[in-house]
Design a protein around this nucleic acid. Structure first.
Length: 476
RNA sequence: GGCGCGGUAGCCAAGUGGUAAGGCCGGGCUCUGCAAAAGCCCCAUGCGUCGGUUCAAUUCCGACCCGCGCCUCCA
């Protein structure tokens, strides 16, 4: 059974399969603009896309995952200038930070990660095709605009009747659309090429229309064409990109190549709220991964939180939620440990099996997998996993092995790495000594002394967990 | 105004035309000198409101209330 996923354009749940005659499933995801650390909202989208890619792979598809880096736009140029760096040096710093965060969150690197700056010629070529075909025009200042009225089905992704919108002279905020800013012919036309401006500094490239830089929308069209072809299987991004970015991509790509059917499937993930509020710079709730780690949360706990809601519903990200995730993850680890013990496996053997075995051996987790394949229902899948782990009947060793295989694949698909090496907290000599003394007191049944020593440890911020044969010291 | 999404227990969150997964928290028990950890058990006659369809609706239809998103470069 193929994976089924809701498609934004058709508004239907549809099977995900490579185009006829192809054996590779091509997916393009809009990546980050590298002008600062990505926030958890960005990472929700990238994490959900990562789960999709992993799920498709577990389902046996060969996936080509392309995710771009936007390294030239107003924000990157301004950021570079403010930091006194070249654009390249500036975006390299933030790209590396992004990669580090992705790695910590367990995101598989995309197979191709093209950058906009590296694809200027492709973008220029596409713009040229649009001009040649009459879909774009050159303004007085050398900027090039896409002429929306030449694209009859513009608006099809968002189901907007664009002939009406075109005449709208102001947006919902009551602000006039500044149609004359760049001498656009129509308010809905958008920039493909922006002519060189003094504030761009050294960041301009040659083109048939003079020096300048590409508009934002064209980069994704050019890079998806370069790496996946004129048509490909799936295009993803945050729901905010649905309009106008993705609508514009469709228009540019289909008009430039003359081939309809740019992306067969559109995958949009809902946004994140933080503590019940919309994320925004002014509210200061745009958490970066580092800030959560500084609060004592592990990236895996953050990942669990990010996937704990269905991707099409907005998710309220709260610190309590991450704490809940920590407990849930710990429960998952205990359940997995029990299963491994029943199967006679070590933790090291708890890995997703190679592709050949991929379709078999789900054990009791077949239902969880089924749920995951149905519109990437991660919460439902996790619910199934916990249900199975709570079953009372002890599995036979053979059943447990099947279960381990199934669970390993589920967790691989979700990208949840259990048993992550926890940062060893060094035990101060003073604490270790108190612990040893308390253990000795307990052994000699001097409970009054033992209780006092426990209090002393608590005062230092440590707790002592007794076992039958020894004890652990943990930082509170 | 246009196009969408959603309102399920204290919190988070699945799901279904036949009577509510799961996680967290909380309570109880077992274990334990104490404490914790762990295991087991309990925790929505109820799924925004009001109508309608139906043998049966939280699930379908309609209206209404409430919250949220996008509507030109924010994942």
């Amino acid at each position: 059974m193929p994976v089924f996923l809701h498609d934004t354009m058709s508004r239907e749940k549809r099977p995900l399969l490579p185009k006829p005659g192809r054996d590779i499933y091509g997916m393009y995801c809009c990546g980050p603009t590298v002008y600062g650390p990505a926030h958890i909202g960005n990472f929700r989208t990238f994490t959900v896309q990562d789960v999709l890619r992993r799920t498709l792979e577990v389902a046996g598809l060969k996936v080509k995952h392309v995710r771009n880096i936007t390294d030239v736009d107003d924000k990157t140029i301004r950021g570079a200038q403010a930091s006194g760096q070249t654009l390249g040096a500036f975006t390299k710093t933030w790209t590396e930070k992004f990669h580090a965060d992705c790695k910590a969150l367990g995101l598989l690197p995309p197979h191709v990660e093209p950058s906009a700056v590296e694809h200027i010629p492709q973008q220029v070529a596409m713009i040229k095709a649009l001009v040649d075909r009459g879909h774009a025009y050159v303004a007085k200042d050398g900027s090039v605009y896409f002429k929306v009225c030449t694209c009859a089905d513009y608006g099809k992704l968002n189901h907007i009747d664009f002939s009406k919108l075109e005449t709208q002279s102001e947006n919902s905020a009551g602000e006039a659309n500044d149609a004359d800013e760049y001498e656009r012919e129509s308010a809905s036309d958008f920039a493909l090429w922006k002519s060189r401006k003094p504030e761009d500094g050294a960041n301009f490239w040659p083109s048939p229309w003079g020096e300048g830089r590409p508009g934002w929308h064209i980069e994704c069209s050019a890079m998806s064409l370069a790496h996946l072809g004129a048509t490909f299987d799936l295009h993803g991004g945050g729901i905010d990109l649905c309009f106008p970015h993705h609508e514009n991509e469709i228009a540019q790509s289909e008009c430039a190549t003359g081939v309809k059917g740019f992306a067969a499937h559109w995958f949009h993930s809902a946004h994140l709220m933080v503590e019940g509020e919309k994320m925004s710079k002014s509210k200061g709730n745009l958490y970066a991964l580092d800030e959560l780690v500084a609060k004592g949360f592990s990236p895996m706990e953050v990942r669990y939180t990010l996937i704990s809601g269905h991707y099409r519903s907005s998710l309220n990200f709260t610190m309590k939620g991450v704490e809940d995730s920590r407990s849930a993850l710990a429960k998952l680890e205990r359940g997995a440990d029990r299963l491994l013990a029943a199967a006679g496996f070590s933790r090291a053997e708890f890995v997703a099996p190679a592709t050949q075995e991929v379709q078999t051996s789900w054990g009791r987790f077949a239902k969880a997998w089924e749920v995951l394949q149905d519109d990437l229902n991660i919460p439902g899948c996790l619910g199934q996993v916990f249900t199975v782990l709570a079953e009372k009947d002890e599995p036979t060793a053979e059943q447990a092995r099947q279960d381990v295989s199934g669970l390993a694949k589920i967790l691989f698909a979700l990208g949840l790495q259990l048993f992550a090496a926890k940062a060893e907290v060094a035990i101060p000599a003073e604490v270790a000594e108190l612990g040893a003394r308390r253990w000795a007191a307990k052994q000699s049944k001097d409970f009054a002394a033992a209780d006092q020593l426990r209090k002393d440890l608590t005062a230092l911020g440590w707790t002592m967990l007794d076992r039958k044969d020894g004890y652990d010291l943990k930082k509170a």
